[in-house]
């Protein structure tokens, strides 16, 4: 109960901070929208495979930017303060959950805008939506932990990319395959393998980061 309460308060704090500055949401939204627009202007017409790949590349960079700030942006003093009043487990759970929420909202808006601009709707839209949700879930679990590691290591953004890309490539490959199945409107039973793999990877990444974070935060 104590942990749950702490998580609740920490998420509330994140939301409040976000609501006050609206930096992440607006900044990343603008980033996604302008990237989509640039892509549209340079491609104009596009085939399905490129459409899919482009969407995931845009989402990858957007989520790196959105999630990286969760630890990199916190000042040392504020981190210290949070650590004295909350358990590290609560902190990482709260950050991860908050990032999942943020990424879900972002992905939905991005998907909507992306298919609107390019005028291409996947055959199996609900399935593509599931893929997008799973994508935002996996991006946020993996990137949250990596951003914690990168923020501890000192030189933020560059290290974040180096550390997280190899970790996220396997997830990205499965995601692209799942999304491709949805675009082609294949039977849903075909994609069950990929969904299971993604869920397993997420559970694994979540469990490992919850286990390891308590060791990470102490300096």
């Amino acid at each position: 109960m104590n942990l749950l309460n702490q998580v609740k308060f920490l998420i509330k704090k994140e939301l409040l901070l976000e609501w006050r500055s609206k930096y992440a949401l607006n900044g990343v939204l603008l980033y996604v929208v302008s990237t989509v627009f640039v892509c549209f202007l340079s491609f104009v017409s596009i085939d399905k495979i490129t459409w899919n790949a482009l969407f995931w590349i845009i989402m990858l960079f957007a989520s790196i930017n959105a999630v990286a700030k969760s630890f990199l942006q916190e000042s040392k003093g504020r981190q210290l303060y949070i650590y004295t009043i909350a358990s590290p487990l609560a902190l990482i759970v709260a950050k991860t959950l908050y990032n999942v929420m943020l990424m879900t909202v972002l992905t939905c808006i991005a998907l909507l805008f992306y298919s609107l601009v390019f005028g291409l709707v996947p055959r199996d839209l609900p399935m593509y939506f599931v893929a997008a949700l799973l994508g935002s879930l996996s991006f946020s679990t993996i990137f949250t932990m990596v951003s914690a590691i990168a923020s501890k290591a000192g030189n933020g953004g560059m290290l974040m990319a180096v550390l997280s890309f190899p970790l996220v490539i396997p997830v990205l490959i499965v995601l692209i395959k799942l999304a491709k199945n949805a675009i082609d409107g294949l039977d849903r039973s075909v994609s069950l393998d990929e969904i299971a793999t993604l869920l397993i990877v997420n559970v694994m990444a979540g469990a490992v980061s919850f286990l390891l974070f308590p060791y990470l935060w102490r300096d």
């Binding site: 590691i149 550390l163 970790l167 990877v201 990444a205 490992v208 980061s209 060791y215 990470l216």
Partner: peptide, 17 residues
């Protein structure tokens, strides 16, 4: 400490890969 944490985080990913 930090590299140990990254190493443990990376190993299951390598197994998946």
């Amino acid at each position: 400490k930090i590299s140990a944490i990254y190493n443990i985080f990376a190993f299951p990913m390598m197994v998946v890969l």
